[in-house]
């Protein structure tokens, strides 16, 4: 497979791709994130692991403003997510500005969320044509290339319902890449797949990492984290319990909670 993301614009100016400062998130009375501090560097594969309900998916969704944070600061490529700061005042961004920020951040969902009324090719073409105003011909050619690269060039005219879960997820990755993002968010991309289909999706992600894409991956695939990840954060109950290089954290966890979690999943 050739380069999946040869057009990646690397993070500019030496600042981290993602920076979270004391990020809090509450839904009503439920306090989901209780102060997350972390940094993700350009070209890094950053794995978020932890038990369900620990807030890792919520944190991921905050990064592209699908959820609004309640307190703290969250920066992507040096820019505040969802807000504009002038002096010491924060202004909410308009819908159009939020959409513009999201263009540079690709997201892959646990349940694929492909558009069922469009073919694989149309799914991949949709955002470049509608958002970037690319011509159909240009978008079609790029979409075809992306589908070829995820190994589904011959499935371009299939509707999502006619594809297996693994194939759907690969189309979803191609769809996110079509916007030429500088950051990719993966929200448990293999959790809804049959075990035998997990490998094909992880292969695509591995290639993407090798091409230097900055990736934040919420996952239960510890093997993938160990092999491909550059850093790993273990979250529990809305806080970062432990972080470090995946091999260190996974083989030699320091905290009790990390140890007990890993003993159950490894």
């Amino acid at each position: 497979m050739t380069s999946l993301a040869k057009d990646i614009a690397p993070g500019t100016g030496g600042h981290p791709m993602v920076r979270a400062e004391a990020v809090h998130k509450s839904f009503g009375l439920a306090h989901i994130l209780k102060g997350i501090d972390l940094e993700v560097n350009p070209r890094e594969v950053f794995c978020l692991v932890g038990p369900s309900g620990s807030g890792k998916s919520t944190f991921l969704r905050c990064i592209n403003h699908l959820e609004k944070i309640s307190a703290g600061r969250l920066y992507v490529d040096g820019r505040l997510v969802g807000y504009r700061q002038q002096g010491d005042k924060l202004y909410e961004l308009k819908e159009k500005e939020v959409s513009a920020q999201r263009r540079d951040i690709g997201m892959v969902f646990q349940r694929f969320n492909l558009f069922p009324h469009m073919t694989a090719l149309e799914n991949v073409m949709e955002a470049p044509v509608q958002v970037k105003r690319e011509t159909k011909a240009v978008a079609r050619e790029r979409a075809q290339q992306l589908l070829d690269r995820v190994g589904l060039g011959d499935r371009k005219d299939h509707y999502p319902a006619q594809l297996s879960g693994g194939q759907q997820q690969r189309v979803a990755i191609a769809r996110a890449l079509a916007m030429q993002p500088k950051l990719m968010l993966f929200d448990e991309p293999t959790s809804a797949l049959d075990p035998e289909l997990v490998g094909e999706v992880l292969d695509v992600m591995r290639d993407l990492a090798a091409d230097g894409m900055t990736m934040i991956v919420v996952t239960h695939e510890m093997g993938f984290a160990r092999e491909v990840g550059d850093s790993l954060v273990f979250m529990d109950d809305g806080v970062v319990v432990e972080s470090g290089h995946p091999r260190e954290v996974l083989t030699n966890p320091q905290h009790e909670r990390t140890k007990s979690f890993l003993s159950k999943v490894l």
Partner: peptide, 11 residues
């Protein structure tokens, strides 16, 4: 999820 996917693509 359809709305979320669409928003995430910048629509």
């Amino acid at each position: 999820g359809q709305t979320e996917a669409s928003h995430a693509l910048g629509m």
